[in-house]
Amino acid sequence: MQTTFHIRRFNPESESPQSYFQDYQLATERSDTVLDALIRIRETVDESLTLRCSCRGAICGSCGMRINGHAALACKTKVASLISSGETIHVEPMNNMPVIKDLVTDMAGFWEKIRQVQPWLQPTGSAPEGEYLAAPEAMNHLTGVMHCIMCGACVSDCAALEVNPNFVGPAALAKAYRFVADPRDGNSSSRLGELNNPGGMWDCTRCMECIEVCPKGVGAMDRIMTLRAKGIEHGVPSTSGSRHTEAFADIIEQKGRLDEPMLAVRTFGLTNLRQMFSFLPMIFRALPRGKLPRSGPLHRPIPGIDRIRRLFQRAKEPR
């Protein structure tokens, strides 16, 4: 099948270094991956097309790039899964990191954030003579996050990172989870304390994109949610993030639907005057349009609230 690859190119050494798109036509077969096609372009059409690639089997993490708008490993993406009859395939470098050349990005920042979570085992006391004893399920559970190959796909497509470059990001948080959930690690409390800081686990906006694009099923966002729960369990000092979560649940339990002004007040605190004043313009815009939600005593519980409360009771029962 004749396929068009619409590839974003960038050569920092050209006279006017600006990115542009270049189209390549290529005959592809059913079994071809996007990487096969890119290598064929490089080998037979344009040797200057630059990308990283190595294992061809989704284990080295080199060929992360955006394919039709979403981060993926080129070696794991079948051409046939993207097109049915001659559509164009868009290939671009990963997002949320600087581009060095064509599809090659600078991952220094990515690794800096990985290092930020102190990603090595920190046991307490000296090592035993033999192995550490550990439950087989605990070790099996960790294989889920250890499957991470640090390809950067989750970071590329992370919506929170796009607006908040301080966010440590899904890959680093999944890595942090790997140690918090390791029964041999003795430093969970301090790890969770660190993650509780701005830029840490509460900055995820739960868009689920990291779960969607991960080629190895690591499920970074799920790990972040577990980290948050563990943080609350460990009693790390409350932050706007953890208060938001608690207030959210509390309001739903009381009223059955969200009381948004109350959620804002409880998240930031009524005494946080700067934050409270910052809401005023929004309130004044919403009020005349009748869009200011009711709050406090005016926000009545929904009919059938008893059933909602029973759900909460059941969720709180020890399993």
Partner: peptide, 13 residues
Amino acid sequence: HMGVIFNRNEEGR
């Protein structure tokens, strides 16, 4: 000891 998550048997070894 460095942290490899080797598979365990039922006794945790």
